[in-house]
Amino acid sequence: MHEFSISSEIVRTVLDTVEKNNGKKVLSIQLEIGELTLFNIEQVTFLIHELFKGSVAEDAEVKIKTIKARIHCKACGYKGGIRSEREDPFKHFALQTCPQCNSFQNKVEKGRECILKRIQVVR
């Protein structure tokens, strides 16, 4: 459900930016979302499209790139990615375990971002 708040903020930021830059139409927006955020990408995409309806961004393409996670395990020293969804179906709930030693004591170095990279507009 927190997808709604992040999607609203994305839409608000896009429309504000387009207005400030005298954009007539938004062609696409590009986002980067870390794999360790608790966002469901499909829901975010759906909500952005819904919230864009009736605006200059109505037909915009929503491109989302996933940023791979990188953790540093304090227990065994492992540095690198986490288990894939196939290896661990509960990834989003068990996302902090180290793939080498299963410890929860690790630092997330990458993968918690949610970045609005760029907007393509017609002026």
Binding site: I6, E9, N21, L116, K117
Partner: peptide
């Protein structure tokens, strides 16, 4: 703001970190 393909299409580079806010 970068001008791309065609005369009136522009890329607006935002790099806005939303959760960071």
């Amino acid at each position: 703001i970068i001008k791309s393909k065609g005369p009136e299409i522009f890329d607006i580079e935002l790099e806005k970190a939303l959760l960071a806010k």
